[in-house]
């Protein structure tokens, strides 16, 4: 019984690692997550200009990240309505894990 539970948690862990790898393997998605990990909220237009993507292309990446619950898109009202992308606690944790794995990988290369 305990062995089964252990196997089950290993499977969940591996599938999470695969999911993270799949989500972060793409350059724009990795950069979006990195930026938001540091700044929490970034404007849609700012992201689009920074990454030199078309609105449709950026929307596709945001949707992918939204799909796994790493970011949310919301409207912010300043002197004009703005679309902003915000990292979720789940997204921050996933990125932190991914970054520490990457750090470990670089250490191992040394």
């Amino acid at each position: 019984m305990a062995n089964d539970k252990g196997m089950e948690s290993n499977v969940i862990q591996s599938s999470q690692i695969i999911l993270k790898k799949e989500v972060f393997s793409d350059q724009p998605r990795f950069t979006i997550m990195f930026l938001m990990y540091l700044n929490k909220t970034v404007g849609f237009t700012e992201l689009q200009r920074l990454l030199k993507l078309t609105p449709g292309n950026l929307d596709h990446h945001i949707k992918k990240l939204e799909g796994v619950g790493y970011v949310i898109m919301r409207k912010k009202f300043l002197w004009r309505p703005l679309n902003v992308v915000e990292i979720t606690p789940k997204g921050a944790e996933a990125f932190r894990d991914y970054a520490s794995n990457l750090k470990q990988m670089l250490k191992d290369i040394k």
């Binding site: 350059q27 990195f34 700012e46």
Partner: peptide
């Protein structure tokens, strides 16, 4: 990938 992201973060 990390290097490219860092360049964008510096610009931001």
């Amino acid at each position: 990938k990390v290097n490219e992201a860092l360049l964008i973060i510096e610009r931001y």
